[in-house]
Design a protein around this nucleic acid. Structure first.
Lengths: 189, 189
DNA sequence: ATAATTGGAATGAATATTCATTCGTTAAAA
DNA sequence: TTTTAACGAATGAATATTCATTCCAATTAT
C-alpha cells in the first residue's frame, strides 16, 4: 500500500514531455531528459510509446481532444451572438488556463513530426462552431462568405489574441471584450 | 571573364537552405544537404555562418527585412480605408509570391532557434501600419482599442488568410475581398 | 611577358558529439 | 514460481563542426 497517489505512468511521461518540449523545443529535449523529468527510466518510455514521434503525436491529439470538449455545452436557446461569444471565451479561457498547450501547438502545428492522421483527428474540433455559423448564415446574421474562410478567420483571431495575451506582462481586463467585438463585427452581416 | 553570372555564394547558401528547410523541416536538413544543394563544400558554409542556428536566424531576419520594405509606398493622399486595403493586399501578395517565406515563418516563428535579437529586428516591420492606425483613430475611423491589440488582430487575419490560401487547391478570386471586408469591419469604428 | 609568390576562399574527409533506441538485468506483482 | 514491468548502460546511426590541404586569382619579381 502506497502513501502517495497512484498516478498513471503514461500520463506522467506525457505531461513531463509536454513541459520540456514547450520550454526547450523539440531539438533540445532528449528522451533521457523526459525520462528524468518523469522519474522513469528511458526503457519505460518505450514500453508506452514506440518512439519519440509517437509520443509527440499523442500529446498533440490529447490536446485536440480536450480542446474539442470545450465546445460541447452550446445552449441552443440562446441568441447566436451569445453562443458565439461563449464559444470564443471558452476556447480562449481554455488556452489561457493551459499555456503549455498553446505553446505546444504553436511549436508543432507546422512541424512534419505531426502526422496526417493526427491532424485529421484534430480537425474535428471545429465541427460544432461550423454548425453554429451555418445557422447564423441561414438567419442572415452571419456574412454569406464561404464558411472555411470564416472559420480560418476566427482561428486567426483566436491565435492573435493568445499570442498577444502571452506576450503581455500585465493583463488588460477589457481586451477580451474588445477582441470579441472585433471578431463579431468582422463576421456579422 | 566568365560567361555565367557571378552570384554571391552566401546568397546561394541562404536560398538553398531556405528551400530545403521549408520542404524537409529543420530536423531533416543536415548541413551536408544544404552544402550539396548550394553546390559548395560544407566548410564553405562555415566560412559564412558560425553555425546552423545563425544561418537560420539570418534567413529569418532577411525575410523580415523584405517584408518591411513592402509597406514603404503608402499614399497619404488616399483615404485611410484605401491605404489600409492596399497594405493588406501588398503584404498578402508578398507572401503569395514567396510561398517559401511563408512556410519558413510558419515553421520557425515559435521555434527556440530564433533568438530574441532576431525577433526584435523583425518586430520593426509593423511601424508604418501602426502610424496609419493612429491617424485612423484620431479621425475616429478606427476603433479606440489599444493599438497593439488591433495590430495583433490584423496579423492574425493575414495569417489565417494565407493558411487558407495555401491550404486550398483551387483559388477563389473573391476571397481576398471578403477577407479585407472582414478585417475592415472588425477594426472600423 | 613570364615566372614566382602569396593570401585567403573553398573544400570535404575526419572528428566529436548528441541522442534515439535496444536489450539484458533487476525488481515488483500475480 | 512465473509473469510483467521498470530500468539505464551500451550501442550505433546521424550529423554538426573542424581543420589540414588544395586551388586560384591577384600581385610582385625577373
Amino acid at each position: 500500500m502506497h502513501l502517495y497517489l497512484h498516478v498513471n505512468k503514461k500520463e506522467v511521461i506525457l505531461s513531463s514531455a509536454l513541459i520540456l518540449l514547450t520550454e526547450k523545443g523539440v531539438h533540445n529535449t532528449p528522451m533521457s531528459a523526459i525520462a528524468k523529468a518523469a522519474g522513469t527510466g528511458m526503457g519505460t518510455i518505450y514500453n508506452y510509446f514506440p518512439n519519440k514521434e509517437s509520443l509527440i503525436n499523442e500529446i498533440y491529439v490529447n490536446i485536440k481532444v480536450k480542446e474539442k470538449s470545450v465546445f460541447l455545452d452550446f445552449d441552443v436557446e440562446q441568441p447566436i451572438k451569445t453562443q458565439f461569444e461563449n464559444y470564443l471565451r471558452s476556447i480562449i479561457d481554455f488556452f489561457i488556463a493551459n499555456p503549455a498547450y498553446f505553446k505546444f501547438m504553436e511549436q508543432l502545428q507546422a512541424s512534419p513530426i505531426i502526422t496526417k492522421e493526427s491532424r485529421e483527428e484534430g480537425g474535428k474540433s471545429v465541427a460544432s462552431v461550423h454548425e453554429l455559423l451555418v445557422k447564423g448564415q441561414q438567419e442572415r446574421i452571419i456574412k454569406a462568405i464561404e464558411l472555411d474562410e470564416i472559420l480560418m478567420f476566427i482561428g486567426g483571431a483566436i491565435l492573435a489574441y493568445l499570442r498577444w495575451y502571452f506576450h503581455q506582462s500585465e493583463t488588460k481586463t477589457t481586451s477580451l471584450k474588445n477582441q470579441a467585438q472585433m471578431v463579431w463585427d468582422a463576421i456579422k452581416e
